[in-house]
Write a protein that binds this DNA or RNA. Structure first.
Lengths: 333, 333
DNA sequence: CTGAAAGCGCTTACAG
DNA sequence: CTGAAAGCGCTTACAG
């Protein structure tokens, strides 16, 4: 098909072959409806023969829109966010954006370098996922005036806009669920950090408001793991009376608790019920299947992409978009 | 610190403030050793006052080096590659590259679009991870003459260069391990696709060469899952005599088999031994800890980054780099 | 060690 | 619907 081109073809090469100006070829790509059908056909032809692929760096420089989005995540190896990230990336790709992945590793020095990289590429937006950005980073992002979308949580004062859900409300709703199911002695395995704390406090508030006594609990460091669930189970078992429901900060934790409980000969949920968080696919695959809290990653991604689209059009967008959550009741609680 | 700049600062703004030409400021960034110390100080100062961040699109266009690398992966949600990807991204960041993540979802139409995007950004390299690229994509990559690194496996005829290990050899080595440990009736849970097949064949070859009879087995679709392990266990249990060792295509599978075995009252490894693949962190965390095959993701990433560095310098690089693998013996086999 | 100037490959008012 | 031309913000021989 394509000619054995020595150099990469440029817009002008296509233009010459199609016998039009390079402006018209540019329009063929960016405002296709404005070029005549016969002209378009000739251009299409030339593109195919040259194997032309537009240089997006040149395009971005000229148009001042990079069509690049930087997505910041703490890590991907054991991340609760992976599903949401995938769906977000899909949604953005569909709108012609390329996605730069930046892993912060909960390291502010690294974060700062990565922000500079993103700013250097003149990204059209920065998407922060479960990242607690330090003050310096927040300021830099603000001062460079780049669209910044904080996802997952819903901070009171977002850098720019936030798309997520209320962790506090997750805690409250989980307490209501536990109450309705008749559990009496919940025990919270909460994650360190603001979001984990918000869920814990939400649970405690709703639980005590409903007349329960303040639940016991333990805090574990992030990222939470299967092994932590194992460990935590020993603590739980030593309690007297033993809790009847373990509310975990992640499905990983829930899996560890559940496995340890089974090994100890306990029935789940009969002797001990377990609730996870994140609704990883393994939660559904486990036997007994794990009751968990689902965040609609696809919706989250779609909304983030939508915010971008509207911002690019100069429309006003709300500072907070709540995508909600849902408790998926399965066998473990 | 930084002035309230209306527009984003340009190289020229820095130059004016530092009282040098923009060429010198450019050199400050790209060949720092060549600019006088006193001049450098003035430039540094100006950069700080303006909050200047170089426009990498303009730089890339002018220099014909984008400092961008596209990493193609099938998915990230349940990927065996995540550790390697993290380490690769780290290694590349350290060398000043930005990483574009492209998820192919085992979809050739999508793959083709993503390749165009990467080519459009004029990436300095494309890194393929566990991707079976179709003919069209291979040709496009070749004809555009972009550095292409295939990782994970070691295909006989790579598009450009390959950094990985021999899946066949993993199979062989696993058979030797099983033999040495005295197992007699191995059963292979292999993944569909070339790499899974290579490992299976390697195992069978080494096993029969050593005088064993051809092991039984079953093939499962990728991505492999915990639930598949559950299912497969039923098949295994129905065998008479039952296998004494299950060789799994992933740690997820191994986890499922192991869990199902425990639920069925079997001792691991006493009644049934299990080997995984990938050495996910959960393999070490599980009780009994799972014997698995470790791929050094950090090494893989480092080598890929090294290939890039040398290619950028115009050096010749070998078409194949073998990073090897290692069987991590734990409790499950 | 530094500067003047051409050029990288596009986009986009402006004019027709 | 199309073209001529200026400009996006850098890099890099070339000259000194």
């Amino acid at each position: 098909m394509s000619e054995p081109n020595r150099k990469t073809a440029r817009l002008e090469d296509v233009a010459r072959l199609a016998q039009v100006s390079s402006a018209t070829v540019s329009r063929y790509f960016n405002s296709p409806d404005v070029v005549a059908e016969r002209t378009a056909k000739r251009i299409e032809d030339a593109i195919g023969r040259l194997g032309y692929v537009p240089n997006l760096m040149a395009g971005g420089l000229a148009s001042n829109r990079s069509k690049l989005v930087a997505v910041f995540v703490p890590e991907i190896a054991h991340s609760l966010f992976n599903d949401a990230i995938e769906e977000m990336v899909d949604g953005l790709s569909a709108q012609g954006y390329s996605v730069m992945l930046a892993m912060t590793r909960a390291n502010n020095a690294r974060l700062s370098k990565l922000v500079d990289m993103a700013l250097g590429r003149r990204v059209d937006a920065v998407i922060l996922t479960g990242v607690v950005s330090d003050r310096e980073t927040r300021d830099k992002l603000r001062s460079h005036n780049v669209t910044t979308i904080e996802t997952w949580g819903l901070p009171a004062d977002p850098i720019d806009v936030a798309v997520g859900f209320s962790h506090r409300e997750v805690g409250r709703e989980t307490a209501r669920f536990a109450r309705a199911k008749g559990y009496n002695r919940p025990f919270l395995v909460s994650a360190s950090g603001g979001r984990g704390e918000a869920r814990r406090i939400g649970f405690e508030d709703a639980w005590t408001d409903a007349g329960g006594t303040k639940p016991g609990g333990v805090e574990v460091s992030t990222p939470t793991s299967f092994a932590q669930g194992f460990e935590v189970f020993q603590t739980i078992r030593a309690q007297d009376p033993m809790p009847d429901l373990i509310v975990c900060a992640s499905d990983w934790l829930a899996l560890g608790v559940l496995f340890a409980a089974r090994e100890a000969g306990l029935q789940v949920p009969g002797d001990l019920a377990v609730i996870g968080f994140g609704n990883l696919s393994i939660a559904a695959e486990m036997r007994p299947a794990i009751t968990s809290v689902n965040i609609d990653g696809e919706l989250l991604g779609r909304q983030a992409a939508e915010v971008l689209r509207r911002k690019a059009l100069g429309e006003d967008v709300p500072r907070h978009t709540d995508v909600g959550f849902r408790i998926i009741e399965r066998d473990s609680a």
